[in-house]
Simulated scan of single mutants.
Amino acid sequence: MPAHRRSAALAPFVAALSAYDLGPGGVHRGLPSSTISITIPEADSLEIGRLGSRERFRAVVAGLHLDPAELRQEGGTRGVWLTLSPPAAGALLGVPASALSGQVAELADVAPVLDYLPERLATCRSWPQRRALVEEALLAGLDRHERDTGGELPATLAALSALSALSGTARVQEAARRLGCSRRHLSGTVRGALGVTAKEYQRLLRFEAARGGLVAAARAGTVSLAAVAAAAGFADQAHLTREWRAMAGCTPTEWLRTEGLTGLTT
């Protein structure tokens, strides 16, 4: 299948698919996310430190999480990284996002049919080849899911509607009103689909908005934490800093420095 057709078919499910390079030392701080991530090193394995424990993975799937992780890759520091929308877990991997919430696991354990990917990716000689291999594997998963469900995706559509409503407002009650349902019904839908509460999902969205705002402002030359906080929906700069300490394990300015971004102001 041509590249543009593969990408179009996967667009509702795949938020990002890219090559990565952890750089000197092969270490990266993994931040809380409202998406499901899959990391496949080109060589060796990946060590993930989280919640006081460390584990090694040949290829790793991480569900929605509200805490940071440290990714360390010895030897080769490059690989393939992709993020999936929560409903994509069932459609592409065959497991609900709720089963992955707060977890990190071997890709082969979550989706045994994908256990060949690390070895095959290691034989690819270019990024286009790697990208095509991953996209074909995901499309095969989508085909299997559609055969198993007869093409019906009611749960997926309900989850997508709930997530869209939550991303469009800062209050769960307002999202429920827009959907024409009770807050309890919306909360149950989100918890069942994602494994996190509706408020926790909005907390992740706010954190991600701040992260994007910080990066954009730093690249523009100057970061005003107060402005980033207001744009992302935080009460004030202090609220932003507290959330970053709790969810990233550092302050926003500390994170920007570790990422090599400058232009810091308060």
Rank of each mutant, 00 (worst) to 15 (best):
R219G: 15
W81S: 03
L51H: 13
L179S: 03
T149Q: 01
G23Y: 12
G221W: 13
W127Q: 10
R183K: 13
L133G: 09
G233W: 12
I36H: 01
S45V: 10
G168I: 00
A111R: 05
V172C: 05
T266I: 09
P32Y: 08
L17M: 07
T197G: 15
S33R: 05
M247A: 14
P112W: 03
A176F: 01
L153Y: 07
C181I: 14
L166F: 12
Q173A: 12
L214S: 03
A69P: 02
S101K: 06
G90T: 02
I40S: 06
D148H: 09
V223R: 13
A226V: 12
S101I: 10
W127T: 13
P118L: 15
V113K: 12
Y20A: 10
R191F: 11
R78F: 10
P87H: 00
S126P: 05
A15D: 02
R120P: 04
R131H: 14
G75M: 13
T197Q: 09
P86A: 06
G213Y: 02
G212H: 11
Q237E: 15
R50I: 14
E136D: 14
G30L: 13
E135N: 08
G102T: 08
L194A: 08
R203Y: 10
S85E: 08
G188T: 05
V172H: 02
S85W: 04
A226D: 05
A170Y: 05
A59P: 08
V80D: 03
E136M: 14
G94F: 07
G76S: 15
E119V: 15
V134G: 01
L107P: 08
S164I: 10
G188H: 07
T222N: 10
S187H: 07
E106L: 05
W81H: 15
A232R: 03
P12Y: 00
L31D: 01
R219P: 07
F207T: 07
P128G: 00
R219D: 12
W255N: 07
D236K: 13
T265E: 04
L153Q: 09
H239W: 13
T265N: 05
L22Y: 11
T149S: 11
W127C: 13
A88K: 02
V80E: 02
A246R: 15
A137W: 01
L46K: 12
R206I: 04
L163R: 09
L240S: 01
A217Y: 00
A227G: 11
A246E: 08
R242S: 06
D115T: 09
L22W: 11
R177F: 06
A246C: 15
G141Y: 01
R171H: 08
A3M: 10
P68R: 09
E42N: 15
G25W: 05
G192L: 06
P96H: 07
A132S: 13
T156N: 03
R130M: 15
P96S: 04
A62H: 09
S161L: 11
G94S: 07
G52V: 02
D143C: 11
P128E: 02
T241W: 15
G63Q: 03
R54W: 01
F57C: 15
E55Y: 12
V60F: 09
M1R: 13
R131D: 00
I40M: 14
P87I: 03
A217I: 04
A238N: 15
A220L: 10
S224C: 06
